[in-house]
Design a protein around this nucleic acid. Structure first.
Lengths: 220, 220
DNA sequence: CAGAAAATTTGCGGGCACGCAAGCTTTCGT
DNA sequence: ACGAAAGCTTGCGTGCCCGCAAATTTTCTG
């Protein structure tokens, strides 16, 4: 009876491990093939075959063809944003905590991300799927915000979390709009210039709402 | 040379009229068939045939099968929300203007809406498409907010508009969650109970941000 | 008005998403 | 440890979305 912590995963169980493995295999295969051949020359059958599962199984894991690729790129960034907010504790005001957490998590370019960014950035269905992925921030962020002292209802937390997600999406859109704009970072096609600035810029209008929520909701 | 006003539509032109007519025919056909047979027993071919166009043309007007139906139900409500905000002028503070406009436009149940609500409310792909439709509020609302005196950048307006859209979506979700909840309105299955309350509740957390935007942005 | 230019409709074909019902694997109860 | 229950995978079939290019219609120009 090893101390597994308070609410930790009891023992992962064989079943769960297999699912994780399959998911990971699909992600990796999808990304690899997309990089090799270009995103428009990858069929869902190819991904399935490369991952060693049936084409039908692919759609048990991902609802669209692009989802696996962006899932490989973003790599659970959504969940880590929420963690980063929680890690800042109730000391720092909510607006600061959220802004810092978002900027932090979107700044860490996970290694080869530079190479991959052109792939997902190039306008197409992938670009859309990538932007949609930022909506996934909302659910975990809702939990974190709701747990804050002073926030009354879950409804408030949901609205604020969804607003943050929307702001992030807009920041990404604006960022992708100006490829070789003002602060071009070394002549690359990748618009790595001012993502943190765009994020801060987009989150700033929400700051009053975020901070007000902690001071007793709207009319409490 | 009749006075056509400053920026009014010059003369509608034949082409435009036909497009409007086709769009309307598709909407109406889709809604009628969905009511008659139930939403799952309507093929896109049926709608096209009923509207007198080819199946391929349907997808030139609507990107998904459900879009035509919800388009018939919501009937450009999105655009009217923006108009309702603008109609309130810069006198009333932004938060109030937006809240009142949204509540007003979502309260007017356009006639037989009661009959149709069960259709789009019944969980399925339609329900999802209906919720997605609230995102269409953002673009026109962005323009209205950006035109407000005191709002500095377009980015701010976009974020706020998107946040409002997200709040509306959440309000609709919560509203659909409790069919026969607290304020049941006459024993119907339709959860007409407290939609305005849910909308106000969802928009309230954003009020500080909306009002702050008019007082010179965040740090202006 | 004739002819060019621009936009829309339509048929065709490919690929994708998903419900359904076996078949097989993991998990659980005794 | 054994059998049942639950869950995952897979093949099949249906329907939908959309790119492409030819045909048709509307608009524009001289």
């Amino acid at each position: 009876m090893w101390n597994t912590g308070p609410v930790t995963t009891p023992p992962p169980g064989l079943r769960e491990r297999k699912k994780r493995a399959t998911r990971e295999a699909l992600r990796e295969a999808a990304l690899r093939l997309a990089v090799e051949r270009g995103p428009d020359h990858v069929r869902v059958d190819d991904i399935a075959e490369a991952a060693g599962v049936s084409p039908r199984t692919y759609n048990n894991y991902f609802a669209s063809r692009e989802q696996a690729i962006v899932s490989a790129v973003t790599a659970d960034r959504e969940a880590r944003v929420a963690e980063a907010v929680a890690a800042r504790g109730a000391r720092t005001p909510l607006a600061r905590a959220v802004t810092e957490a978002v900027v932090e998590q979107y700044t860490d370019t996970g290694g080869r991300e530079r190479e991959v960014l052109r792939l997902v950035t190039a306008r197409g269905a992938l670009r859309e799927a990538f932007l949609d992925s930022s909506d996934a921030i909302a659910p975990p962020l809702t939990a974190v915000i709701a747990a804050r002292p002073g926030v009354d209802g879950t409804a408030t937390a949901r609205v604020l979390a969804a607003s943050v997600a929307a702001a992030v999406r807009i920041a990404l859109e604006e960022w992708l709009r100006a490829p070789a704009g003002e602060g071009r970072a070394g002549g690359l096609v990748v618009p790595s210039g001012s993502l943190p600035d765009r994020l801060r810029e987009a989150l700033e209008p929400l700051a009053p709402a975020l901070d007000a929520a902690e001071r007793g909701g709207g009319r409490a």
